[in-house]
């Protein structure tokens, strides 16, 4: 079980801001880091990898400062956003090259490299030169390199970039299983949907500052100034109208809207916890069965546009 702690970390590159006053606590499982280009995602990763030294503040990975720490490097696997290959090598050569740096003997390194590549579905092409690889195969090779020595911490910068859907799916399944093994995984992706599939734990970052971090549902609850909209759809569409009427009797429902064509009602409340607790009982009492209770408000799309783009009333 590995933990990563940022204590008020600022990193400037000359006069250019990397990240500013970032405090984080990342535990085991998958954590998604989201934000626009240039927001500071890669800088955050570089600081925790020990590739960059914080200008102010301190970082602890498993309790130690990662900058220039050798023991830690056996515990962290890194998949950078960009290609980072010796193009003339085959995937097996490439992965085993780095495994030898991790103090495996040549035979062990080749064996581990092959296993790791086969696990990622590259068995047919792993002896071919990387130069001939497609984008998806390149991503798999990078992931194989970062995971072949079984690190406890994985840092994945846009691992799905350019990957075809099959590769994307495979990588996600792998990430899920590594997460279940108790690895600490930090992942960035521009495809919010992918992150949502993998995890509820996110870090939203923009202009070098952390806007929010934690469970996305909890983050939404903290934004108490914006009412939550909940979509409900009863099985019997004749009950749409009575249900809205009944719900508007409660003073904690601030608005109700009827979408007849979609067979849904939308309720708005500032006291979401109260709503979620009492709503099943109300349904029981009124003998109404609903087939859907959802709020699009705490989806990553919605959180992202509210917090990062500042579109609070989208």
């Amino acid at each position: 079980m590995s933990t990563i702690i940022f204590e008020e970390v600022t990193k400037n590159y000359g006069r250019v801001q990397g990240i500013s006053n970032v405090s984080l606590n990342i535990g085991p499982g998958v954590t998604g880091i989201l934000g626009p280009n240039g927001a500071g995602k890669s800088t955050t990763m570089k600081v925790l990898l020990g590739l960059a030294r914080p200008s102010i503040g301190s970082v602890y990975v498993d309790g130690v400062n990662p900058f220039d720490n050798f023991d830690l490097r056996n515990k962290i696997g890194f998949v950078p956003e960009y290609d980072c290959f010796y193009e003339h090598m085959s995937a097996v050569d490439y992965v085993s090259y780095f495994l030898m740096i991790h103090d495996f003997s040549k035979e062990e390194a080749v064996e581990k490299a092959e296993n790791s590549l086969i696990e990622l579905g590259l068995q047919d092409s792993m002896y071919r030169k990387i130069r001939t690889y497609s984008r998806g195969m390149r991503q798999k090779t990078k992931v194989a390199r970062a995971t072949a020595f079984n690190p406890q911490i994985l840092v994945l910068d846009e691992p799905f970039q350019g990957a075809d859907p099959t590769t994307r799916h495979l990588l996600m399944e792998k990430i899920n299983s590594w997460s279940e093994e108790g690895k600490t995984i930090l992942i960035s992706s521009h495809i919010l949907h992918d992150v949502e599939y993998l995890t509820d734990n996110i870090i939203l970052i923009n202009n070098g500052r952390v806007l929010a971090s934690g469970n996305r549902h909890e983050i939404r609850k903290l934004m108490s100034n914006i009412p939550i909209q909940i979509k409900i759809s009863p099985i019997d569409k004749n009950q749409l109208r009575p249900l809205v009427k009944r719900m508007l009797d409660e003073k904690w429902i601030t608005a109700g809207r009827l979408l007849e064509s979609e067979g849904e009602i939308i309720l708005e409340t500032n006291e979401s916890e109260k709503f979620y607790t009492e709503f099943p009982q109300i349904l029981e009492d009124e003998k109404i069965i609903v087939e859907k209770i959802v709020s699009d408000d705490d989806t990553l799309d919605s959180l992202y546009s509210k917090l990062v783009e500042g579109k609070q009333w989208k």
Partner: peptide, 14 residues
């Protein structure tokens, strides 16, 4: 340029 140095710097090689 190849960014392999980034990988080397995150690997246990002096």
């Amino acid at each position: 340029n190849l960014k392999t140095m980034q990988i080397l710097r995150t690997s246990p090689i002096h």
